[in-house]
Every structure is written in structure tokens, then in C-alpha cells.
Computed example of a mutant assay.
Amino acid sequence: MGDGRTGKDGDRRLGRRALIVGGAAAAVGTAALARDELSHLWWRLPGVEKPRVEGAVDFRGARWVAASPANLRRADRPDDYVIDRVIIHVTQGGYRSAVRAFQNAGHGAAAHYIVRRDGGVTQMIRELDVAFHAGNRAYNERSVGIEHEGFVEDASSFTDAMYEASARLTAAICGRYGMAVDREHVIGHVQVPGTDHTDPGPHWDWGRYMGLVRRARTARA
């Protein structure tokens, strides 16, 4: 047993110790946050350039046509940003007009892929880079965007060949990043917070599409 003075000294020592421990924990947390932020800022440093293989694609069979660098942000995903979404879009136009738009530096937007009516797949941005396609920065950073040739109001835009090719592409993306094949991880542009887009629209058959994605995912597995 100690007297009151010893108890107060003990309380003071415990208080100082708590401050030291708390300060150390805060420092560790701050260092972790700083490290995370530096990983996101890495691409902004002058002269930094991650090696790229010209014309390389992430999906076998895709054709490479580069988008304007103004419509994307260089990154090192999934190391700097986790990829946990596939976002389905519709071009509201033909394939060639979509390619021209994504190659236009003033357009301000582009998706990683375009799927044509005939099932052809074109990749315009590497999956490791952030494409400006969702109209929401956080969703851009964490997603892969797939455009589909056609119009939301025209059901005939969405052909069998398109559904099947797109499903194989989405299944490959889900497998590559360990995503579940469900409507939480495969979403329409209309579901992105803050967007004013309605694609893929009422004629996109989600039930059919997700069934094809699951079948393709099982086949790949």
C-alpha cells in the first residue's frame, strides 16, 4: 500500500505513459496515411514512368486502340487503388464515333473497353490506369469501364454476340481481381452516385447478362 502522494505520482506516470503510447500510435497511423497518400501521388512526380508494352492488352483477343492520355490518369492498379467494380455503359452512338470521342483530348472521358454489336472487343485504356468514365472520382479509381455500341432506347443494339463477348470480358475482370459475380460488383452507369446517366437502360437484360458472366466465370475457373 502507498500513501496518497505515491498514488498521485503513479497516476502522473501512467498519464505520461498513456500520452507516449498514444503519441506513438498516432505517429504510426500518420505514417501509414502518408505512405498511402504518397503511393497515390507517385505518378505525379516529374519523370516517373511505369514501363508499358506498346499495344499490350489485358483481355486476350481484344484489339488495342489508345485513348487520349487526357482522358485517363496513369496509375498502378490494383497496387495503388483496389479494383472492385465493373461498370456497364452504352455509347449512345456507333463504335467509330465512340473511338473518336475517346481519342479526343477535349472529350474528357473514356472507358477501358468498347464491345461492338458483332462481339468485337477494343481496349483503349489499360486496366492498371484510371479511366474517366463514371463521372465519380472514387468509382473511376476502383472500377473498369466497359462501353457497348448502341443506344439505350434501342433494344436491338444488344445482340447475342455482344452479350456473350461482354460477359466473357467481365468474367475475366472479376476473376483477375477476385470480385464476386453479382450486382454489387457489376453495375450500370446509372447506379454510380452523382451521375446523370441512365445507361445501360431498360432494354439491357441484367438477368441474362449475369447468367452469362457466371457461366463464363465457371468455365474459366
Rank of each mutant, 00 (worst) to 15 (best):
124 M>V: 14
109 A>S: 13
128 L>N: 10
98 A>T: 02
114 I>D: 02
158 F>G: 01
155 A>F: 05
81 Y>E: 03
146 I>H: 01
93 G>R: 06
117 R>D: 11
176 R>T: 13
127 E>K: 07
156 S>Q: 08
118 D>S: 15
77 R>I: 13
151 F>H: 03
157 S>A: 01
82 V>G: 02
96 R>C: 09
71 N>Q: 10
140 N>T: 14
116 R>F: 04
109 A>C: 07
124 M>H: 13
182 D>V: 11
147 E>D: 08
78 P>C: 11
181 V>E: 09
112 H>N: 14
124 M>K: 14
77 R>P: 14
178 G>C: 15
117 R>E: 12
81 Y>S: 06
164 E>N: 06
119 G>A: 14
141 E>H: 03
109 A>K: 05
122 T>H: 07
125 I>F: 07
86 V>Y: 03
163 Y>W: 00
133 H>K: 06
177 Y>N: 09
158 F>H: 00
147 E>G: 02
99 V>L: 15
75 A>F: 06
132 F>K: 10
166 S>Q: 10
139 Y>P: 10
128 L>A: 14
128 L>C: 11
162 M>E: 11
182 D>I: 12
104 N>V: 07
136 N>L: 12
92 Q>C: 03
165 A>H: 02
79 D>N: 13
118 D>F: 12
113 Y>V: 04
136 N>C: 14
127 E>I: 09
127 E>N: 15
90 V>Q: 10
110 A>R: 05
162 M>A: 04
100 R>M: 10
136 N>W: 08
180 A>S: 13
141 E>A: 07
125 I>S: 06
99 V>N: 05
75 A>E: 06
148 H>W: 01
108 G>E: 09
148 H>S: 01
137 R>K: 10
84 D>H: 11
102 F>W: 13
